[in-house]
């Protein structure tokens, strides 16, 4: 009686072929547009290619095989861009904490809940180019609303995007503003999945709201917080668009305060490839990959101490 109709659930010879065939398009894409460039990037990082013409590509002599990596590691600007990128990533924890606050506040019976939810998420769907133009206006020294707001408290006008001291804090504020919505949506969904029974039981036992949040709600949210942290870090270590678009008069910001690692790579390969070119740019790409992988690994390692999956 073992049905002969439902064959799709069995590893028949026919299914082995049809299944693999139907499943394959994204994998073919992965092979052609991810695996091939990935290997090629590694090769380029050991080559002396400056421009884009592959026929000029020569590998570095065996003795100097790591010359590109040495060049990048000895380049002060690379380290600066790495520090800038890590500094900019400070937006992530801020964004997550504020999103958690909003999600927790909206996880109660309130009128107009839906409007708040809708509103908080809007910046996340917006074009980053449009948002950088918006923030350039908000942060403008002369007529920006931020200086007008602070001026009301007697604070002198600040050149937010033109002063290397204030450039990154401005970008962090913008980053938090832009990403709160995403973190908020995921945390809200996770909050509705927290079993209310535990909270009720703790309440009967006399636990206050604060204790209940720390002991019951927060542990239940740790898998989501971990996901947001891992994915958010991978994304913020690769930031580029905002930083390239925000300051066109001084690319990279005053004193390169806004030069991220990806921007550094872009500069080496597309803007200054006469001096540097593909070799150092790809070496920088792999160094960044190593940093991303190291941080992700540490994240998973540390997660055993604070993430609870029950």
């Amino acid at each position: 009686m073992e049905n002969h109709i439902y064959k799709a659930g069995k590893k028949t010879a026919k299914n082995n072929v049809i299944g693999a065939l139907l499943a394959s398009p994204p994998l073919i894409g992965l092979l052609l547009f991810t695996a091939v460039p990935l290997v090629f990037s590694l090769l380029l990082s050991f080559s002396g290619l400056k421009g884009f013409d592959v026929s000029d590509m020569r590998f570095l002599p065996a003795g100097e095989l790591f010359a590109n990596y040495k060049t990048v590691l000895a380049h002060g600007l690379f380290w600066k861009s790495l520090l800038n990128t890590l500094y900019a990533a400070a937006a992530l924890p801020l964004s997550i904490v504020l999103a958690l606050l909003l999600a927790q506040l909206l996880n109660q019976k309130l009128r107009g809940k839906k409007i708040f939810r809708t509103l908080y998420f809007i910046p996340f769907v917006c074009s980053i180019i449009a948002l950088t133009q918006m923030w350039r206006m908000l942060l403008n020294t002369q007529y920006g609303i931020l200086n007008e707001f602070f001026g009301a408290f007697g604070i002198a006008k600040i050149n937010w995007l033109g002063d290397s001291k204030y450039f990154m804090p401005s970008m962090i504020v913008m980053g938090v503003w832009q990403t709160i919505g995403f973190n908020f949506i995921l945390l809200s969904a996770a909050l509705t999945n927290v079993n209310p029974g535990y909270g009720e039981a703790a309440k009967v036992d006399g636990a206050g709201a604060w204790t209940r949040f720390w002991r019951i709600t927060l542990p239940a949210l740790t898998p989501t917080l971990f996901y947001l942290l891992v994915m958010g870090l991978i994304a913020s270590l690769q930031e580029f668009t905002r930083f390239q678009a925000i300051n066109q008069t001084v690319p990279g910001g005053p004193d390169n305060a806004g030069l991220t690692v990806v921007y550094y790579m872009y500069r080496m390969s597309f803007e200054q490839n006469i001096t540097y070119g593909m070799g150092p740019a790809n070496a920088a790409a792999w160094l960044l990959t190593a940093v991303v992988m190291l941080i992700t690994f540490l994240n998973f390692r540390l997660s055993k101490k604070w993430v609870s999956y029950d």
């Binding site: 547009f33 991810t34 091939v36 460039p37 990935l38 090629f40 990037s41 380029l44 290619l49 884009f52 592959v54 690769q238 580029f240 990806v262 790579m265 872009y266 390969s269 593909m278 740019a281 790809n282 790409a285 792999w286 960044l288 990959t289």
Partner: peptide, 10 residues
């Protein structure tokens, strides 16, 4: 982002 430059060259 590692794919950016090699893809462009290809």
């Amino acid at each position: 982002i590692v794919l950016l430059i090699p893809s462009f060259v290809i």
